[in-house]
Write a protein that binds this DNA or RNA. Structure first.
Lengths: 206, 206
DNA sequence: AGAAACAAACAGGTTTGACTGTTTTTTCTA
DNA sequence: TAGAAAAAACAGTCAAACCTGTTTGTTTCT
């Protein structure tokens, strides 16, 4: 690797650090995600780590931003790839759940839990989370225009479905992917149909 | 306080320690819930703390057991006090949510999040959580016998509602008790009616 | 040459569980 | 039943390990 530009070098180390931080959050949890461990896992010296992210909070905040950017892309791509068939609503639910089942998602849970009692971290995370939520809501409205016309009711339904998935993700801590997880997703399908599209005339031709 | 029996002394200090641990978990979060701080908050010497709970994990595990015992009592009392009127289902939902809004509930969230990556803690928490869930399901079935006759569908609905509430509780981390929280509970009322009692013939005379 | 990236050692502060010693209660025994 | 012995509860200190952020020095790019 001769003659890498500064920008390339920076980007490479930062990417290594952020991925390592996410891995570490998933594997070890927030408490044991120390700057030392992250640097070692990233194969980067501690000096370099501190150069790019001067504090631990800065590091994990950047990591979650990195993660959410990826999640937003996943949502976007997923929605764009939704089949234009009769069960789009169903497919949309499955998409949401699949993204929230991503391997790195527990890192977000770790950080938001920690943010509850860490003002600094919360200040970093609040705007990131708000932006992400807005993105998802925007995408959902864009891809289900007919249902979105129901306005607040649609928004409430979406919020509820996301809450439920968030709860399911939390529950995984204890019972990882139990057999009844599928049943719960099925219930969500049912609910979505009831709340968003009670008449049964789906968004097939949207 | 002359002549307290050993059992009394033990029970008193243990209660002080467990309450202090819960307070600390809620206020400071899992990472900053150190044995030192808990002992100080409890007004107990560090030696005494170590005598009753030899490790940090033992302490927090006992604390969460303490908490869940109380939550189960709250559910029980709440269900027993449900009015025998037409909107029992609605009142039941509100009860579930009010218990999950209890001041100490965030302590449970902290511990379950930590348990994901702490085998020791998880081993302690898993049976506690399982027992608690079973208790809630049992109570719900006992107090909504007509709906419970729908079997798996009832269980799925209950699980989903609890998931959603869990998700809402987690979301509080960022937006504490936002205005739309009420809207989400309203959506849950709607869902409960749809999933559990679609005909509208409520459990009024159960 | 200057700036950015990287490397490594260091100091200050914390936490945990072990360890030693003291007081209070219970149990055994005379 | 009185007093000694044992057990339990309580108190406080200590060392090892660790983490964070600073600082100082080196290499790589512009």
């Amino acid at each position: 690797m001769p003659r890498r530009s500064q920008a390339e070098r920076s980007a490479a180390t930062q990417a290594k650090l952020l991925d390592a931080a996410l891995d570490c959050l998933v594997e070890c949890g927030y408490a044991r995600t120390t700057t030392t461990v992250v640097a070692r896992r990233a194969g980067v010296s501690r000096g370099a780590q501190l150069h790019h992210y001067p504090t631990r909070t800065a590091l994990v905040a950047a990591a979650v931003e990195h993660l959410f950017a990826r999640l937003t892309r996943d949502y976007q791509d997923g929605f764009a790839a939704l089949p234009p068939q009769a069960d789009r609503l169903r497919a949309g639910i499955d998409l949401l759940w699949s993204v929230m089942s991503a391997p790195h998602y527990p890192a977000a849970v770790e950080l938001f839990t920690a943010a509850r009692t860490d003002d600094d971290l919360r200040a970093h995370l609040t705007p990131i989370a708000a932006r992400h939520q807005a993105n998802v809501a925007h995408l959902a409205r864009a891809y289900f225009p007919a249902a979105a016309r129901r306005g607040a009711r649609f928004d409430a339904a979406l919020a509820m479905i996301l809450d439920a998935m968030q709860g399911m993700a939390s529950a995984r801590v204890i019972a990882r992917g139990g057999p009844d997880e599928a049943a719960r997703v099925a219930t969500l399908h049912d609910i979505a149909a009831h709340l968003i599209d009670p008449a049964g005339l789906t968004e097939a031709r949207a």
